[in-house]
Amino acid sequence: MAFTATLSSGSGAATIHLAGELDASTAPDFHEAIDDAVATGAGRLVIDASELTYIASAGLRALVFARQKVAEDVVIAITGVTEPVLKVIRMAGLDHGFAIATS
């Protein structure tokens, strides 16, 4: 399944909807969406991962990238994460600075 990262915004939040396989080859598209989301100046960034079918370590790193790219006072919420992915995020210590909700 092809990867897509779709940005939508409204009522002070920017939402990036992820679908498909997030790996090293598709992570740049995600990075681009993060840049676009930052440009909206929204105070809240939602990353909707509910339609991700696969996430590799490059995908997890893209989350770190998002946290470092976005201003500190912007809340980043990740929604729709599967339990195994959440576990990896926590074990690797990448969960700092996110509000994470599982699917």
Binding site: A56, S57, L60, K87, V88, M91, A92, G93, L94
Partner: peptide, 19 residues
């Protein structure tokens, strides 16, 4: 590393040192 299969052992070890 619990995340060794993901190749994330460096991150996991760093998270340990940090905490």
């Amino acid at each position: 590393a619990a995340t060794g299969a993901y190749g994330m052992q460096a991150d996991e070890f760093k998270a340990l040192v940090k905490d």
